[in-house]
Computed example of a mutant assay.
Amino acid sequence: MASVVSAINNTVPISQFNRGLAGKIFDEVKKYGAKVVMKNNMAECVLLSPEEYMRMIDEIEDARLCALAEARMEHFDAEKTISFDDINRKLGIKEEDLTDFDEVELE
């Protein structure tokens, strides 16, 4: 029953936009979360706050990167790896060449 109540509370008929209630609807989205806009008894779109949208986009990107990493690890062969020192030797980079650089921060 709670999911039915939640669905009803999170839907808004498009006619409310036509009646000039967009500001109120947007305030509710910011305060309570996403709203589904209904048109002719069908879901037309979903309203999200910019923060919630960005959170979702970040989560999707994280999932894509995780899937890519997992796919790469399936084909990982330790025998084909090249050490950091070997790469530096191949490129002619010496330890003192790297001392003037700031630390790199990875997210």
Rank of each mutant, 00 (worst) to 15 (best):
M1H: 08
A2E: 07
A2L: 11
S6A: 10
I8Q: 04
V12S: 02
I14A: 01
Q16H: 08
Q16N: 09
Q16P: 05
R19T: 13
G20N: 01
G20F: 00
G20I: 04
I25E: 00
D27I: 02
V29I: 11
V29N: 00
K31I: 11
Y32W: 08
Y32N: 15
G33H: 01
K35T: 07
V36R: 06
V36H: 09
K39E: 11
N41L: 11
C45I: 07
L47N: 00
L48P: 12
S49R: 05
S49A: 14
S49E: 06
E51D: 12
E51S: 12
Y53W: 07
M56Q: 10
M56I: 15
E59N: 15
I60L: 12
I60W: 14
I60P: 05
I60G: 03
E61R: 15
A63F: 06
C66F: 12
A67W: 01
A67V: 04
L68R: 05
A69F: 12
E70H: 00
R72E: 11
F76A: 14
E79R: 14
T81Q: 10
T81V: 15
I82E: 03
I82R: 04
D86T: 13
I87F: 12
N88P: 05
G92N: 01
G92Y: 04
K94R: 11
K94P: 08
E95F: 04
E95K: 10
E96T: 09
D97E: 00
D100C: 06
D102R: 08
L106G: 02
E107H: 08
E107F: 10
